[in-house]
Every structure is written in structure tokens, then in C-alpha cells.
Design a protein around this nucleic acid. Structure first.
Lengths: 208, 208, 208, 208
DNA sequence: AATGAATGAGTCTTCATTCAT
DNA sequence: GATGAATGAAGACTCATTCAT
């Protein structure tokens, strides 16, 4: 066929190259995801390469350092959460309704992408995490935290949400979410899915 | 005088040596605690030595391997928890009362020794953890899990505890505890103490 | 041309890589041979790497551990000896003829490969030798020992070989062989070759 | 008793100190002997101290370095041999008679003190051996070598000893002796004694 | 773009030696 | 003289990263 002929004469079309580049990047990203989720920064580049079935060197063709690869992974994992918070901020309704929406979203996200959650956990717990990553996480965390705090305080004012120190409530709620993510580590995917609690359970924490 | 004579024959009395040995062991254990809690097995022995202000080699004078040191740390951290569960199993009262007792104990423990909790977290989440440690943790976890599950099921029967899948309830509760421990990482000790929720908040998860 | 196209997709052909791998393995094996023969397991991997003019890490690219490298070396050194014994077992002739054949072979081998002999010596005399190696050596030693013993006993029966305790004779003979190997350490190769005794000298030990 | 009183007042008599010093030196020397014979310089000072049932530090009170201890051991082990050679040089008789005397002495020595022989072997085969030791060994070896060579050449002249290259004969003879010493490593003491060959076996090597 | 050989800094561990008592 | 705690310099091994092809 003609394309083959061309390939032999012209090194390779720009577009083909670009496409390959994108595909490989995505491929490696996908593979490293699994590895990093389980081992955090302790994972080795060799493991990543093996999981992606490419050579050691190729990973460096697409990502300059291990840190960069990890960072990109985390940024991606983080994005969805930020979007969801934004939606919550924009929507109308009572504080409880909006909190329910926020929590539902979080639970769905955790349930579908426990890997992502694990990843962010490693970022937080490993002291060796690059600083920009830390900042990124800090930022998102702060956003979520503030959004939820405001909703809780408002809810307490309207009586929809139990009284008491809102920060303690918040702390319990956030801990629960973090813990749910972590529990994906030690359970089989089936168990994880089966035991995953619904929003209504979490909401009980807030019941007056 | 006799003591002078003895000095010539016995150098540094046995007791003095024993005391030094005990103190140094404790000292190193204490130092490694801080290091391992933050970094898990990724911590280096050099860091431990530096934190304890001793030479690299001395750590090995007291602990045969990094793993052994880590293991001893975890075993110590674990012990209190096991004892508390045993008390719960032995006590009388309604399911809710016993669950309250169990949770109170867990919260106190988490609050007082967040480092211990972090340590156990690293054991669970690091794939590189030595196997005997894993087994130890697994055992304790299983004990707690079963104790709580039984109490929840019983409580649901008597109507003291909300219905629904007991495993989901349990999962939410456990996640909350795990998450609380982890949150010690990213907060200042003061904040951590201040925001730490009381039992009544957690119990709301179970309210019918 | 096709080869150009291929180069873009396949970097350094599989065969080239395989060849490099083989060559380097052989190269390192050759270098470590000299080092281990002289120092036994006391030799350092750094010395091996230096002798082979490669980096420290590369040695581990080809051999998983120092022990494995050493073992492979010894297995190679051992093989020739085992083959020769087998031939002796299979051949016909009088006991003395067969013994002569066995000894000639041993002498030739020792003379040509004193390094190999030294290596096996270290295995036997170092208490730190890995156990599987020990077993390997033990096995070969036992084979040789038994083969020679049988030939001596038979030779004594036919009167071709001097009487007396066959085990003492055997011991003297074996010691002589071991000693010849060792003497390669302290002599220049030229001296070693020049002074190396012929079979007829050794056979005199057995003369009635 | 009076002596006790004195001890309490005067630190310790000069003579007592000297006696203790001698006894301890001898004691440690004796213990290190066993250790070094088996492991050569690979033996650790801790092992020596343990075998002597003294503290680590005490060994350094009597011997400045590991090397010095080892050297002293070897010098002691060597002395007997040198004496025996001197006797041979001084005695009269035919070359064969004198050679027989020399070899008998060597065999007796090897048989009684295989440990000593092992020690000297380690000196020769370890490249890490201190240089003065090497020289010492070299010297003794040279003396023995020359003495035996002269006797052999003379014996060949009188026809008492087989013809052929005297150096090859010598080499075989020396190898046999070295080998006998080494065989102490891999045999139980009982076997070693039982299989140890008499002079007449060795002398056969020289028979015309 | 792709491979995997090659490098070297960093980590755990051992051990000769010193030091306070 | 005696003890054993303490030190620090190697040595085996790992792994992020670079390089030739």
C-alpha cells in the first residue's frame, strides 16, 4: 500500500508522530497509575516500565523524571474533584441539599476511582513528595474544606444540621472520606464495592 | 576503699551497663518512632541515627535490622488497642453501650497517640512491609472488625442501631477512624486536638 | 532502505543486544575469575568491576549477587573434572592404566587451569562459602574419591599397586593434587609450568 | 589473709600484674588460634573475643591490631618448623637418611598441629596478608626448599633417589605436604589421624 | 520513537578500633 | 586490667537517570 511506501521514504508523518506520542503518554500514564497507587513514590521506574510493557528508557522519553510523572498523575486525579466542588458552589438549594450533592459526588468518585484517592493519600503522607504537588493538594483540600465548612455552618443556622463545633463535625466527615479511600488498599475490589456505604449513612453524621 | 579496688577489676558496673543499654534502646526507639511515623519504611537508618544523635553503627548495636526496629515499634503501638478490645469483649451492657465504650477507647487512643496510628497505617499501605508485621496487623484488624460487627448486628436486632447493611455501616465507621488517624499527618498538633470529634459525633453514624 | 526504516522502530537489533549481553557476561566472568581465584569470597564486587573496567552497577546487571557470580564461576571450573572422571569410569583396562589416565587428566587440568583449582580451594577452605556450592564441591570430591579408591583397592589386589592402608595412599595422592593446585598461588606462571611434575612422579607413590 | 589486705591498699603487685598479663595473652592467643585457622583473616575480632570469653576491648589491650595478633600466631606456628630444619642441616648421614628425618619431622608436625599448618596456608593464599608475615613465610619456605633441594640433588648423585628434574620432584613433595595440611579442614580429627600417611609412603615419591 | 546497556549516588549492614568508666 | 558502648569507614546491592544505537 501507498502509506507503507511513504513511510519508507519519509521518516514518518508529523501527525503520526504526534498521535504515537499522545498514545504512548496515555498508555504509560495509565500503567504508572496502578503502580504508584499501591506503592507511592517507593514504586520504581522499572516497575512502571514493566507494567506498561515498554523499555526503561522510553518512560523518560515521555516524562522527564519520576517526580514529573507522579505529579502529572496526581494533577489528573485531582481535577475531577475540583470540578465537582465548583458545581456545588454554583448550584442553588438548601445547605443540606448542597452538602448532599457534594458528598454524593465525592462518594461516587471515591468508589469509581479508589486508585486516584490512594494516590493523593500517598502525596499527603509521604514526606518525600515534591513541594509543588504538596501545594496543589493543599489548595484543593482547602477549597473542599472551606466549601463544606460554610455549608455546615449555614446548615446549623437553619437547624438542618446537628449543632456543636462545626470543625469537629467537618473533621469527622473528612476523615471518613479519606478512610474510605484508603480502605481500597486492603480489600478486594468486590468487597470494596459491596461494603461501600451510601450517602445516607454519611449524612447521619450531620443529623441533628 | 573497696569501691576503688572494684573499679580496677570491674569497669563500669553491670548495672550501669544494663541501664545505659535500656536507656539507649528506649532513646533510639523514641527517635525512630518520629521518623517512621512520617516516612514509613522509606525512612533511612541514617535519619533514625541522626534523630537519636548517635552514630549509624550504634543503632545496629541495639536493633539487628531496620525491619526489627520497625516491627518492635509497631508491636508496641498495637498492644494498647488489643487490650482495649479484650476489655470490650469482657464487659457487660447493651450492644450500644459496649460499642460506645469501644469507640471511646479508640478515639482516646487515636488522640493521644496519633503517631502510633500513622505507623500502623504505613504497615498497611506499604507493600514492602515485612510479612510478620502484616500478619500482626491483620490479626488485630480482624479482631476489632469482628467485635464491632457483632455489636452492630446485635444493636440492630434490639433497634438501638440503624438498620441497613451492617457491613456498610461498619465500613463507614472504620474508615472514619482510619481517617482520623491519618489526619494527624497534615495538621498541627494543636489543630488536631482542637478538631478531634467526640464519641457522640461518631455514634450518630449508627443512630436509627 | 529498509534497514533505515527499521532502525527508527527497532533500536539496536535484538541480536546486537544479545551479543553485547553475552560478551559482557563473559567479560565480567573472565575478570572476576582472576579476582576470586586470588582472594576467594573476600574479593569485593568493586574489585571485580574495576578489573572488568565497568561500573559497579553493571556487574549486578549481569549477575544477581556476588554469590551467584562466584557460584557460576565454580560450577564452570568444576565441570571439566566431572567429565574426566566419567570417562575414567567408562573406560576399560587394568586398574593401574585407568588410574594413570585419571591422574594424567587431573594433572593436565591443574596445569592448564590453576585458577580453577584455586577457586575450588577457596570454596572448600572458606567457612563463608554458600551452602549449595559446598554441596556441589562435596559431590565432585566424593565421586573422585570413590573412583580412585576403587581403582587403588583393585590395583592392590592384582599387585600392581603397593599394599598398605588404601586410605592413607589415597590421602597422600589427593593431598599432592590439592597442593599442586595451591602452589600456583605463590609461583610465577613460568616457574609453575617448569616445575610441574609428570604423572610418572605421582605414580611412584603407588609403586609396590 | 594478708595478701587480700595488701591488694586493697596497694593497687596490685607488679608481679601479679605481669603474671596476669602473660596469662591473658596466652589465653587469647590460644583462642584466636582456633578461630583464625578456620577462617583466616576473615575471622572477626568479636569471634576471637567470644572464643576467649573476654570483652571485645580486652583483646586490644594485649594486641594492638588484628593483624598483629595474627602475625604473632603465625610466627609461633612457624618456629617449630624452622628449628627442625636446623637440626636436619646439622645432622650427619646419607642424603636419604637426612631427607627421611626431615620429612618425618614435617609429618609429625603436620599431624599434631594441623591448625598451625592451616594458619600458614591462609597467610599464603590470602592476598590481604600483611607484608612482614609474607616475608616471614617466604623466608621459612625458602629455607626448607633449599635444604630439601640440596638433599635431593645429592641423593640423585648417589643413586639413592630417583633421577629426573629435581625441581619437579621437590614440587611434588612440597605439594603433598601442603595438601596434607589442608586436608585437615575438611575431615574430622579422627579421620584425619586415621588416614594420615606414614613417611614411607611419601618416600616412595623419591624411589629410584 | 525505542531499546536496554551503562553509570553512580545512595542505603543497609558489618566490623576494626577507640573511649568512658 | 576489664568492660562494652560508641564510632565510622567499607562493602553489597538498588535504582533513577543517561547514552549509544
Amino acid at each position: 500500500m501507498k502509506s507503507i511506501e511513504e513511510k519508507q521514504i519519509m521518516p514518518r508523518s508529523k501527525e503520526a508522530n504526534a498521535r504515537i506520542r499522545e498514545e504512548q503518554r496515555a498508555h504509560i500514564l495509565e500503567a504508572s497509575w496502578r503502580i504508584f497507587a499501591r506503592k507511592g513514590m517507593a514504586a520504581t521506574m522499572a516497575e512502571v516500565a514493566a507494567e506498561a510493557s515498554v523499555s526503561n528508557g522510553l518512560v523518560y522519553h515521555y516524562f522527564p523524571t519520576k517526580e514529573a510523572l507522579f505529579t502529572e498523575l496526581v494533577e489528573k486525579a485531582t481535577q475531577g474533584g475540583l470540578d465537582h466542588i465548583q458545581q456545588t458552589l454554583d448550584m442553588g438549594g438548601t445547605p443540606l441539599e448542597r452538602l448532599t450533592f457534594l458528598l454524593s459526588g465525592a462518594l461516587v468518585w471515591l468508589r469509581e476511582h479508589p486508585m486516584y484517592a490512594l494516590l493523593t493519600h500517598h502525596v499527603a503522607s509521604d514526606e518525600t513528595t515534591p513541594n509543588d504537588l504538596r501545594d496543589l493538594m493543599q489548595k484543593q483540600k482547602h477549597l473542599t474544606h472551606e466549601a463544606m465548612r460554610r455549608l455546615i455552618v449555614e446548615g446549623q443556622a437553619t437547624g438542618q444540621i446537628a449543632g456543636g463545633d462545626p470543625d469537629q463535625l467537618l473533621h469527622a466527615l473528612e476523615s471518613c472520606l479519606v478512610g474510605l479511600a484508603l480502605s481500597a488498599i486492603s480489600q478486594s475490589p468486590e468487597q470494596f464495592q459491596k461494603n461501600f456505604p451510601g450517602v445516607e449513612v454519611l449524612l447521619r453524621l450531620l443529623k441533628p
